[in-house]
Write a protein that binds this DNA or RNA. Structure first.
Lengths: 248, 248
DNA sequence: CGGGCTTTTGATATCCTTCAACTGTTGTGG
DNA sequence: CCACAACAGTTGAAGGATATCAAAAGCCCG
């Protein structure tokens, strides 16, 4: 139980305030509300490690031998299409689990957008732990259901919304991701590039840039510095999301 | 254990040949490989029922009090946007579980496209069963992981592919769904309308119609009758999916 | 047979992409 | 410390893929 403090800025009190035995994180990942013996087992089976920004956690097609839990940092999950285009499947934040899927290989690349702190565990060990601790398996199911729900939301956004509505939707999703993980700071980190956002939303980076510019002109958002975002008019963004042009 | 025979056309031997104790289905839904006592419990807690085509199983926003398993039939899951547009989140087939999600309300409408045969169970009972039978919870997790993977694939399709590539991708997905559920017949049922398909792919019904017309002209597919589909050139469809224009 | 869907097909409109040039930022080595 | 290269972002102009609008034909059910 060695508490680490690398997680303090983002990781306040997401569902639990007990630091995780594995890594000291106060974020409720897989280990949410486990009893002491389960936590000991996980601690024994998993390793904590750091990674610089723009590192690769794993690549699409690699044998899916390990699962990862994000203690701190932001990760981009993306798939490369034969024609070179990229689709970002999602962004992952502290508390999220990566690399535990249906197939035998990872279905996408996982790349850090920031410096990060992670936990890794062999998949076979994790499977054994899930069998051993039904509470943990239940937690995994809940994480999976939540992720499924988010992905379905994203499908609606990409499939049926205009460019500006998609960008607004992305911004609100970002706010929500941070809110779930602690008190919302006035300035949010925005570690992804216009290109990342575009690939997430099914848009080009230019279109994303134009939408950001439009939102700034309307004083809906501000970027006080590189990779820093300030939401000025949440309601207007919400309106945009719902299809109406913003008149607030 | 009353074997029903309503499932014979689609429901051949999807992962198991043992008919489900609950409903007689030979499709591996939730009850896949459960022991006798678990099956007895499920049978006691769940009810089987029929529904005509174009019926509503549940609506977006309804309290999510029950989960459903499809024994036979095809179901459309869709979300309605404020501006009246519809996004189809997915189509579900025999063996799939519906209505078991993260939230307290259903996140989408579920509507039958064909006559159907279903199993229903109170959510609280199902949760209790999942706690009681870890094998069943594991099965639920696997179903959820597979669904997540499919939804992520769909995100790539909608986000980054051209209209024809999306339609080709839908057709291949349909083939795959049927293949997983039994020997593939030469003629597949196509119970969804152009509009349903468009709402699934983020296209208008006209664009879907034009893509179908193009594929027929190129002899990639045929429609021998209403709601009947024949795949003539799978490889060319696969090619289209990957971005190249079909030259085969 | 008639009314309501579904589908097809054509003509036009539009939103977003593409292409291009330029600016701003960051990190690196001389 | 500055010069420079690489990368990220901005903005404009033009073109294209798909949406929208419209009309007609086909199909199903009462």
């Amino acid at each position: 139980m060695n508490p680490l403090d690398a997680t303090q800025h983002l990781a306040r009190d997401f569902q639990t305030v007990e630091p995780c035995a594995t890594c000291g994180s106060r974020i409720a990942g897989l280990c949410h509300k486990l009893d002491a013996s389960a936590l000991d087992d996980i601690a024994a089976e998993s390793q904590s490690f750091h990674l610089a920004a723009k590192s690769t956690l794993f690549r699409e097609g690699d044998p899916a031998g390990r699962a990862f839990s994000i203690i701190d940092g932001v990760v981009k999950l993306s798939r490369l299409l034969p024609d070179g285009k990229q689709q970002v499947v999602g962004f992952r934040f502290p508390g999220d689990v990566l690399g535990y899927g249906a197939g035998k290989t990872y279905p996408f690349d996982a790349e850090t957008l920031t410096n990060g702190h992670f936990c890794r565990i062999e998949r076979s060990r994790l499977d054994a732990l899930l069998r051993l601790y039904p509470q943990m398996e239940r937690r995994m199911l809940d994480l999976c259901l939540r992720e499924l729900s988010n992905t379905q939301d994203q499908l609606v956004t990409v499939g049926r919304r205009s460019a500006e509505a998609r960008v607004a939707s992305f911004l609100l999703g970002l706010v929500e991701a941070y809110r779930q993980r602690g008190p919302l700071p006035a300035e949010l980190p925005l570690p992804m590039t216009r290109s990342d956002i575009g690939d997430f939303l099914g848009l080009t980076l230019e279109t994303v840039s134009r939408s950001f510019a439009a939102f700034k002109r309307q004083k809906l958002i501000a970027e006080p510095g590189q990779h820093r975002l300030r939401i000025l008019n949440m309601d207007a963004l919400l309106c945009l999301t719902e299809g109406e042009s913003s008149q607030m």
